[in-house]
Amino acid sequence: MIKLVGVTKRLGGQPVLRGVDLVIPPGKLTTIIGRSGEGKSVLLKHIIGLMQPDEGEVWIDGIDIARLRGQALNEIRKRFAMLFQGAALFDSLTVFENVAFPLREKFRLKGADVTRRVEEKLEQVGLSGMGHKFPAELSGGMRKRAGLARALVMEPEIMLFDEPTTGLDPLMAKSIHDLITSMQRKLGFTAVMVSHEIPEIFGISDYVAMLKEGRIALMAESREFQQTDDPDIREFISVGGTIPWPAIDPAG
């Protein structure tokens, strides 16, 4: 279980997180929504220990990683995989080598085993035959999908997705959402996703949390979340959707 307690963080002199309390249920897909620049990416980086909170605690299954350093932190990170907002592919490696990288470096796999798993993942994100290209030769959406393949290939216990579908056409976005949910059902990992895809996320997420003014304004089951009577949150989740609120039913 992931649990954040009173996490605060200032960046560049500005307060970004001002006391985030959040419990993320294991084996479920939790989506974090919120306005641009609100600190969603910063929040994800706290969960995986790339950023340390100024105050507060970040618990991963009974270990507070907020004060953890070096090898101990590395051990915790072996259970994670993350898709970065900008994909963060290695420029000097081809797409194939990028996706193979965690298999070779993290799991010390070799040869045909690597090739098979990489090619399977590339096909699932719709990039088969693109393995020989370098990241600079791909479109933004293709880079995102390559980054997704690199994260999914690790089959970790905890997956963090920072806007997996931003910059993709609606059909591709739908197939990526389907891929994430089917992988999540199959492997049972805990997934935390940051997304602007309202209302689609209500259909695929188990839980939705809204980050507002540096705090979690609301965290609830997807269906419950849509029935909130907080006017600001209602406004936020109804502007994006073309389907009038509250027509989305996560069960259907």
């Binding site: 980086k45 790339l50 051990e75 990170r77 970065f84 963060a88 290695f90 420029d91 990288f101």
Partner: peptide, 22 residues
């Protein structure tokens, strides 16, 4: 520097590969 700005160094960290070593 580009690897730092585009979060490639963070990505190394998340894959439990030490950037100083690699």
């Amino acid at each position: 520097g580009i690897m730092r700005i585009t979060e490639q160094i963070d990505a190394l960290d998340t894959m439990a590969v030490n950037p100083l070593q690699y």
